[in-house]
């Protein structure tokens, strides 16, 4: 497929005796709204860590628009358009959301190492950051320190930081994790309103959200992709029912 933007070939990784990623061949096309599901410990987060360069694979390749990025450092992959959020909030505690997003924007522009110019000379970055926070309903929290923010706001900031990169590929690791069911809708509203050309892969345990937002679903069990298909196909798949859905809908 020519419109595949991010792909893996034979990706594998083990932690000691535990094979967490086994020969994963995956493709994410432009504008994708794909979901990755699987029981706890299946290796979903690990796959994101491999794609973003946190872990180096034992075997296999990662291609971004056909170019091999397997050896690139995490920050270099970000520069090429792969952004992610974290399952467990991974934020800058003492910065305000406005500072954090401003920094992310400066980094995107390649200005992160400028040490002799105050933010006064990066006015447009600050303004862009504030506009992004407004878009995500975070404007009222823009000047609080991040540690003081309510959990749900921190989840939104996770997404804001990733969006500040203007990514081509967005990897969302359980964006609504820990958010009360009633409030997860707001998060997914934000996600569904993202520009259509961003390729999005999200990990999610809540099947209602998965079936609502994903055009295509990949099921991973014990580090292996066992089946891929449309929501309809996945819902009907006997293998999936057995290993995943059969054990109950949440945190099997």
């Amino acid at each position: 497929m020519s419109d595949v933007i991010l792909a893996t070939e034979g990706l594998s990784l083990s932690f000691g005796a535990l094979a967490v990623t086994q020969d994963v061949n995956y493709g994410l096309p432009k504008g994708a709204r794909y979901a990755l599901i699987g029981p706890n410990g299946a290796g979903k987060t690990t796959l994101i860590n491999l794609l973003t360069g946190v872990f180096a694979p034992a075997a296999g390749r990662i291609l971004l628009s056909g170019e091999d990025i397997t050896k690139l450092a995490p920050h270099e992959r970000v520069k090429r358009g792969i952004a992610r959020t974290f399952q467990i909030n991974t934020l800058f505690g003492q910065l305000t959301p406005l500072q954090a997003v401003t920094l992310a924007i400066c980094e995107r522009r390649g200005h992160g190492a400028r040490w002799l110019a105050s933010l006064r000379t990066h006015k447009d970055a600050v303004e862009e950051a504030y506009a992004l926070l407004e878009l995500l309903n975070l404007a009222s929290s823009a000047e609080r320190t991040t540690v003081e923010l309510a959990y749900g706001r921190q989840r939104l900031l996770e997404i804001a930081l990733a969006l500040a990169m203007k990514p081509k590929v967005l990897l969302l690791d359980e964006p609504a994790a820990g958010v009360p069911v009633g409030e997860s809708g707001e998060l997914f509203d934000v996600i569904s309103n993202l520009p259509g050309d961003i390729a999005i892969l999200f990990i999610e345990h809540d099947m209602n959200l998965v079936f609502k937002f994903a055009k295509r679903i990949t099921v991973m069990v014990s580090g292996r992709i066992i089946v891929e298909g449309s929501p309809r196909e996945i819902a009907a798949d006997p293998q999936v029912r057995e290993v995943y859905l059969g054990r109950g809908h949440h945190h099997g």
């Binding site: 920050h75 934020l91 500072q99 980094e107 995107r108 190492a113």
Partner: peptide, 19 residues
Amino acid sequence: LSLQAMRDNPRRAPAIGTD
């Protein structure tokens, strides 16, 4: 800002493109 970001969270900093 990037110094403070590294201090606060060395796992996140590279994920926003900080070298």
